[in-house]
Amino acid sequence: MLTITDCSVLKAAPLGDRQASKFFLLRLNAPGWTAEEWRPGQFVMVRPVAWESDLPLPRPFSICEVNKEELGLFFQVMGKGTARLGTLRAGDTVRVLGPLGNFFAMEADRPTLMLAGGMGLAPFLGYAHRHPKPQNLSLLFGHRPALDSYPFERLRGLGLLKNYHEQKPGDLRIFLQAVDESIQDNARRNGLILACGPMPFLRAVRDMGKKYGASIQISMENRMACGIGACQACVVKPFVEGGSADRPLPPVFRQGLPVPVCTCGPVFWADTVDLD
């Protein structure tokens, strides 16, 4: 379902260091989506109505949490737009376009490993809340800023939940080592792996997955303009060969042109798109 909703801001709540936080939970009045109308992994394009033509583009964010009252987005201040979003006040109006894009696979009984790097944590909150058997879920989370910058404590009831704080050179290697072992273990149990984070992380995950024959979905964050598949800004090159009987390649992949991440993604099977 594609909708545009004017949502009023309940709070742009800073996380972690309250004075200088660059991490916010943006809590919006719920746009009224039913559970069938959105799926974890989808995203929204957000633009406060007060933005004039100085910031023409809306900003894409993963849907983090949805309940009857609220739509929650989790973001980090990166540049002009997110800095302005961090100053939103209760009662301000934000235009929300979405839910957009496709979503992560979810199979209640399949061991599912979530791999998050930094802001890649966002979609997994909603995923964990929606999963019928969260005890079948594991999450490994690698991060550089302090843990309390992230809504990590909102994740409850998972089979395994572990964070890796990268504070000095070498810590990243420890995280990736743990990721590698978990991927191997998950593949052995014919599980499902979902990854979200920076591109170098996604590439590393893809490579490990290939080594162990794991089933991996990745979520991509290319620069977008329209968010609805019209402008061809956020494209990725799909592989025209590949796919399998249980998950055939989407027909547009066969046309040999790059495909928009906003409508064909943001979630892709890791072996179907060119991440290099």
Binding site: L55, P56, L57, K80, G81, N222, R223, M224, A225, C231, Q232, A233, C234, V235, Q255, G256, L257, P258
Partner: peptide, 12 residues
């Protein structure tokens, strides 16, 4: 058909 240019393709 034309495959277009390398990414990033847009900047505000």
């Amino acid at each position: 058909p034309m495959p277009g240019n390398p990414l990033p393709r847009v900047a505000e």
